[in-house]
Every structure is written in C-alpha cells, then in structure tokens.
Design a protein around this nucleic acid. Structure first.
Length: 476
RNA sequence: GUCCCCAUCGUCUAGUGGCCUAGGACAACGCCCUUUCACGGCGUCGACGGCGGUUCAAACCCGCCUGGGGACGCCA
C-alpha cells in the first residue's frame, strides 16, 4: 500500500483547484458522490476551488434532467461549487484549437486509415499475443486534412510514463503499451482524452481526483500534456465501491443513486460521513462533522483498495444523526415524510413532540414518520400486532384495562405525572406487578409491545382517544 | 492475450520493522440498565491469502504464486 504524503500544508504552493466531472446520463450515484466529496473536501481544506464540469458530449444519452438531478444531489449533500458550470459541448472550438497547436508543433498528424483498417491492425497484434494497437503507419505519410481523416497524437516511441498517484502511489507504464491515439475524430469532434486535458488545463485544475477506471487514461493524458508543453496536474484515483457481496454495484443491490437515499429518509450528513469513511480514515474515528472533515481531509489516508458498501453501517450512522440533530431541525426534515406517509398536514409542534419520543427508535426519516401512525389514526383504525394481542390482551389483561379505563375517565390529561401515578396506584392497590398492566396498556394504546413511555403516549392521544382505545381493547 | 491496480475479522478500517499474544467501528451473540421497545454501558465471537527471502526482529520491506478488479475504441 503506497503511503505517499503529498499534502503537508507547507508543500502546497499554488491554490488547490479540483473538479468533479459527471456525465449527465443518469442520477448521481454513490461512487460519484464519494469522488465529488473527496474533490470538494480537498479544495475546501486548502482553501481552494471546487468546480463542476458537465461532460455531455454523449448526445444520445445526456439529458438536462440528469444534470438538474446531479446538481440537486450535490446541493443536498452540501457540496457547493465555485464559478459557473462548464459544459463540454460548448467548447468544441477550444479543444480543436489545441489540436491545431499539436498539428503545428509536430506532435500530431493526420491519419487516413479507416476504422476497419485499424481494427485489422489490432486483430493482427492480438493474434501475435501483443497489445492491440494502431501501428502508426500514417505517422510519416503527411496525408493532411481530408474527408474521413482523423488526427492522432504522435506519441513517443520509447520511454515510460510515470506519475505519482495520490492514492495508488507510483504508477509506471511503458509507452509501448500506448498507441497513437485519435485526438480528433473524422467528424471534427475531439475525443474524450483530448477534451479532458484541455478542460483541466483551462480550468486551472491542480488535482484530478476521479474513479479508478481512469488510471489507464492517465498516461495517455499525460502524453497530451507533454506534447502541449502544459503542466501535469496531480492525480488521485479512488477505487470503486462494491456491493455488499463484493460484486460490482448494480441494480440488484438496491439503491445506488443518492436521490434514492434522500427519498428513503437518510440524512445528508450521514451519507457524507459514511461515504467519506468508506475509503478514507482518520485513526479510529467514525463520526465526523462536515467541519471536521474539512479540517482533517488533506488528501492522505485514502485507501487504495475497493470497498464493499455496507447498508447496516449507513443505517447506524443515520440513526446516530437522527438522535443528535437538534429537534427543530429534525422536525423540519421530517415534515415532508409525514405528509408522504399519508397523514396529511400535521401540526409542527405535534410532529416535534412525537419525534422526540420516537427518534431513537427509528433509523431514518421514513421509518420515524411511519412510527407516528398509531398516534395519528383513530381508535377504530388501529391495528394490533398478533403477538401483542396474544401475550397481553388476555382475560386478565382486559380486566386491568377495564379498571384503568374507569380511573382514566376521571383523570386530568393535562399532567403527565398524574397519568403515570394512576397506573402505579392501580398496581399497588391490587398488589400487582407493573408488567401485568404495562403490556396490555401498550397493545391497547399503540397496537404493539414496545414504544415510548406510556404517559407520554397518553398525553399525545388525549383523553377521548385514550379511553376509546382502552374500550376497544377490552372488547376485542 | 498484454499491461496496470488491489489483497488485515462477515463488512468498513487502524497499523509505515520491535508499542501487535493485531486496535476501533458496523453486524451477530450474551449480560447490565429499563415499565416495554429503543438508546446507553459491559463483554463474547472473529482477520494479517499462500510460499520463499531480507532482518536479531515482518501484518508492515523484496520476490514468486494464488485470488480479485480495471484497461486495451474515431465511448465517456
């Protein structure tokens, strides 16, 4: 495992500029989200800039709605970006001006070979057990521009391309592994690697943090930088995120887009915390606020190996944030979920009260809203858990409920202590154990065994509803 | 096929030659707390892929093997 320290504060001279460059062909996925978070953190840690570039050159699959969705996820995660958005489709002329420079300085040449001919060359090489590559036959032919002609980079014939990756350490590739790649297609459009190099240079990017799958593009891009005489940025290739089964993340693994987690009631700080911790560490610390992350994340301690996504740990983190978030803040986030659960518009103060009672019993907003159900429906609508009925609503249990109903009919529901005292007095006066009356009360009031402190439940329910539920349970 | 990358408990990880009879967290299990559930506390289970080498000493360095992943486009 490489352990290169690039980012001692005093070694950074120029301003750090990072970028995240998604293709708007889908929603923001957790892998991309993690990359974006790393880029953002590095920039923020060093007081630099974080840019967004939309790589929309795949006209077929790119859609505005995806760009919008990605931006929405970015905002939800709290990743603000600097400057304007850059759209690659709007910069074709710029890319080609750099291709022209390469043509002029002799680092590129026109090629008239057809794709079929190139395929044949590759096939031939492959048959000999060699790396499939273009044989460079137009290198010296000077074919010039023309119909069907593309432009290729005149790559060096010998030597190695070496770079120090922030996460993987030194990576060296022999140029014989690379071929004279096309940098401008016959239709005049630049190719991906060309566009990326030009963009990263033009945007002043100092640190390119991206997915693992780009390591093999890096030497190619470095060749372009060198041919152009441009400074090469620092690269950091973060490994991919695997499914819980260690297989590539796919549909069958469930949620993969951050928007899905949002809809499921996750808190953004939980997702960010989880994702950062997946592939980066700071000793044994598990919980980090955004501020802490900004302070701590200096580009070191990123893990070079792929990590499996663990939904359980995410839920645990989320549950942690659910119970530590200031109550009013949690309530605000909860409101839409309460509405989505079909309870209509519920008074905010009531939601807050219920949230305080149930927050440590739920691990996400959706679950929490759902936990309110027994309190928001009427006695007749309440459904009972079979196990609870069997265990608690026995003949004896019902007798206690009937007796307590009488006592509560006289009670003042404005005072929680009174409501509690009634139960205890009843237990004492009849020489009972609390567990003889507690469980029946729970099932009668909530429909299941478990839940918050009974007097609190009764307070929320109110007198009429409490009595109705006791009545119904007695006669069930 | 060729090249590149990766390899510590089930999972995320700590670990940069002696502090390691390998630490933390999630999960699982058990106990405690408790008016139930949950929270919390305590504990149990559980890993350095294999083989060689370097060294007084290796999870850490080197080599080979094995296993996994990625890349080899006029896709991005």
């Amino acid at each position: 495992m490489p352990a290169l320290r690039f980012f001692c504060k005093d070694t950074i001279m120029a301003k750090v500029v990072t970028r995240f460059a998604p293709s708007p062909t889908g929603h923001l996925h957790i892998g991309g989200a993690r990359t974006a978070i790393f880029c953002w953190l590095l920039a923020r840690h060093f007081g630099g800039d974080y840019h967004l570039r939309i790589e929309d050159t795949d006209l077929e699959r790119s859609k505005q709605e995806y760009t919008d969705s990605i931006l929405a996820s970015m905002r939800w995660l709290g990743l603000d970006w600097d400057g304007d958005l850059n759209y690659q489709t709007q910069r074709t002329a710029l890319y080609n001006s750099y291709v022209d420079k390469l043509l002029e300085n002799g680092h590129a040449y026109w090629c008239s070979c057809t794709p079929e001919e190139v395929d044949a060359m590759r096939e031939e090489a492959r048959a000999k057990g060699l790396k499939p590559r273009y044989n460079g036959q137009c290198r010296t032919r000077n074919v010039g521009a023309g119909e069907g002609h593309c432009v290729r980079l005149k790559a060096p014939l010998t030597g190695k391309v070496v770079f120090n990756d922030m996460v993987k350490g030194t990576i060296a590739v022999d140029v014989s592994e690379l071929d004279d790649m096309v940098i401008r297609r016959a239709d005049g459009m630049p190719t991906y690697n060309m566009a990326v190099v030009v963009d990263d240079y033009e945007m002043g990017i100092t640190h390119v943090i991206r997915g693992d799958d780009h390591v093999s593009n890096t030497p190619k891009q470095i060749l372009i930088y060198q041919a152009l005489g441009l400074p090469v940025p620092i690269f950091g290739h973060v490994p991919m995120i695997l499914g819980p089964d260690k297989q590539k993340l796919s549909k069958r693994h469930g949620a993969r887009a951050v928007i899905e987690y949002q809809d499921d009631g996750l808190l953004p700080q939980a997702l960010v915390n989880y994702l950062v911790r997946l592939g980066w560490s700071h000793g044994d610390q598990e919980i980090f606020t955004l501020e802490e992350l900004v302070k701590l994340f200096d580009g070191n301690n990123m893990n070079a190996s792929a990590a499996a996504f663990d939904p359980d740990k995410l839920q645990w983190l989320n549950a942690h944030y659910m119970r530590t978030l200031p109550l009013p803040e949690l309530t605000e986030l909860l409101l839409p979920f309460v509405e989505k659960a079909g309870f209509g518009t519920v008074d905010k103060a009531l939601v807050e009260k219920m949230a305080s009672l149930f927050r440590e019993r739920a691990s996400n907003l959706k679950e929490l809203a759902e936990a309110f159900r027994p309190l928001l429906i009427s006695a007749e609508q309440l459904s009972y858990a079979e196990a609870g009925v069997k265990k608690a609503l026995t003949e004896e249990g019902r007798q206690h409920l009937a007796a307590l109903r009488l006592a509560y009919a006289e009670a003042d529901f404005g005072d929680t202590a009174t409501l509690e005292k009634i139960m205890h007095d009843y237990v004492e006066q009849n020489s009972l154990k609390f567990k003889q009356v507690g469980p029946p009360m729970r099932v009668a009031l909530l429909g299941y065994l478990g839940g918050p402190h009974l007097p609190d439940v009764m307070t929320i329910l109110g007198k009429a509803e409490t009595l109705a539920r006791l009545e119904r349970a007695v006669n069930l």
